[in-house]
């Protein structure tokens, strides 16, 4: 049996585990398990196949089981100087990170995790495998279902296999920190990887060839540090990037991603009001793609 056939068999085995009836919930690394609410206790737990099945450095693509941990993925890719900047807990799984759909702290440079996905094979409510997207780095064949699956908490299906776009690991990565106006820092730099701010201190990540990193760092009056600060884990609020200008240092614990608009905080209620999307269309879609609501019941992407 060729390795590809073996992977296909693993996907089919996973599909039969998901099956066509009864509530199921897919388990990844449980690193963001609480997001969207816990699955119903009666739901049967299934685990997606894992393993980096094919890394093609010259194509800058990687095919892996959705159950692969970020640690395993990054170790495999590093052998060829490449990465997929998912930037989450190393014990998290690729499928889990995509299902939750939250980006890491270098989103400012690398974009949303959604834009790193090329193809997804998922198991739908009938226990059938559905392929969307395509294996190449560019593709507009059919509807872009992959975008919809990212951030869907498995409500449309359980991811079995994904193909991701890889990037070269930057020659130099440097974190700098100190007291500075984060918005001024942002306007001075060309596409920095991350700017974090807690109201008093900024942390900046610059990446690239060393001469550029030195030159960019030279524009700022900051000290080199090991890495980013610990982020408050209580809540994560997404606001318009410019709203971060309204944040004031008030002694409470928060860290904001400048230019992106994400605030990590321990406050129960931040007072931010976010736009309300078209919930009725979303619920209609949910119903069409999983009429009996058997996939990851209990979890809610659309708040009732």
């Amino acid at each position: 049996m060729s390795s590809e056939d073996q992977n296909s068999q693993e996907i089919l085995d996973f599909a039969s585990q998901v099956g066509a009836s009864g509530p199921v919930t897919v388990v990844g690394g449980r690193t963001q398990w609480q997001v969207g609410g816990l699955p119903d206790p009666g739901a049967r737990e299934v685990v997606a196949p894992s393993g980096v099945w094919s890394h093609q450095p010259e194509e800058m693509t990687v095919r892996c089981g959705a159950g692969t941990t970020l640690k395993e993925l990054s170790e495999q890719l590093a052998k060829h100087g490449q990465m997929v900047p998912l930037d989450m807990d190393p014990t998290a799984t690729v499928g889990g990170v995509l299902a939750v759909g939250r980006s890491g702290i270098r989103r400012l440079k690398y974009g949303h995790v959604r834009d790193l996905v090329l193809q997804i094979r998922h198991v739908d409510h009938e226990g059938k495998v559905v392929t969307s997207g395509g294996p190449t780095v560019k593709n507009v064949s059919g509807y872009d279902l992959c975008r919809l699956l990212v951030g869907s908490l498995g409500k449309f299906g359980c991811m079995a296999e994904v193909i991701l776009r890889c990037l070269p690991v930057p020659q130099t990565t440097r974190w700098l920190s100190g007291p500075a106006d984060p918005f001024e820092v942002y306007s001075k730099l060309y596409r920095p990887s991350s700017i974090l701010w807690n109201g008093e201190q900024v942390w900046v990540c610059v990446e690239g060839v060393s001469s550029d990193v030195d030159a960019e760092a030279g524009l700022l009056d900051l000290e080199e540090v090991e890495g980013p600060p610990d982020l408050p884990t209580g809540r994560r609020v997404a606001v318009e990037p410019k709203s971060l200008k309204d944040l004031v240092p008030d002694g409470r614990s928060w860290v904001a991603e400048i230019g992106v608009g994400i605030v990590h905080t321990n406050d129960a209620d931040t007072g931010w009001r976010v736009p309300e999307p078209n919930y009725s269309l979303m619920l209609d879609l949910e119903h069409r793609l999983d009429p009996t609501g058997r996939l990851n019941p209990g979890r809610q992407v659309v708040e009732a």
Binding site: L145, R147, L148, R236, A238, P241, P275, E303
Partner: peptide, 16 residues
């Protein structure tokens, strides 16, 4: 569909 925040609530209808 979508909004100016980094992580709009709900499914990515913008993306589809």
């Amino acid at each position: 569909l979508g909004d100016l925040t980094a992580e709009p609530h709900g499914y990515d209808l913008r993306g589809i």
